[in-house]
Nucleic acid binder design. Structure first.
Lengths: 111, 111
DNA sequence: CTAGGTACCTCGTATTGTATAGTACCCTAC
DNA sequence: GTAGGGTACTATACAATACGAGGTACCTAG
């Protein structure tokens, strides 16, 4: 490592991407490509396709998301994802855990 | 996974432990065992010896910490760790990154 | 017909958290 | 004097994830 902050930043994001994807989808169902674009707009928080698509698959396998193919009049077929009841519960627990960790981090600041 | 929140929680902590260790040490030099105890008191944020010692080693290899053996009058030898200049800079960048991610997480909440 | 945007998927690699087990020292109590 | 518990560090093996890079296919604009 040394000056390579990028690889550390990746570690800091572990698990967060899943939470963000669930959060984005809890507002409205979206398809993978749109989620990637959405996350890109979300501050400097970037998560490419190579990150998002595997996450979507895992979340679906775990029963936290369900997917549905839709064919628009023109353009490529889109796979829309929606949050399940289990997914919503999981998101709530994740946010609690996140805040707990955050309070631990901030409690040490400027000590 | 499924109901196994523990393994997810572990992912959410990736990278955070390093940041917390650096934060704790930026106040005063401490030895490994004391750091473990300190983190245990820090809310419900638990990181056992099996987690902390490898982290200390990695941080030292990366030049973010330096260690020094000290032999107390009674008891076991203790390895004290201090934050280097590079470590302090690294900690600062980590905190920035942490806050950036946190703002992304919170900005989506209750949308 | 070529370029570029849309939309999806997969593979390989590197990094890290954690349990488990092992070593060794000291002190107290019985 | 010895059994137990607390202190203190180390090594090994495993599972999970982020990300880049590469691949397929469709549509529109010039």
């Amino acid at each position: 490592m040394g000056g390579d902050f990028g690889s550390y930043s990746a570690q800091l994001r572990k698990g967060v991407i899943q939470m963000l994807v669930l959060q984005v989808l809890s507002t409205e169902p979206l398809y993978g490509y749109a989620i990637v674009k959405r996350l890109e707009e979300l501050g400097e928080f970037v998560a490419g396709e190579g990150t998002v698509y595997p996450v979507l698959r895992r979340l679906e396998v775990d029963g936290l998301l369900v997917s549905e193919w839709q064919q628009p009049a023109d353009g490529n077929a889109r796979k829309y994802y929606s949050v399940t009841v289990a997914g919503a519960a999981f998101l709530a627990r994740s946010l609690e855990e996140w805040k707990r960790i955050d309070s631990a981090v901030r409690s040490l600041e400027g000590e």
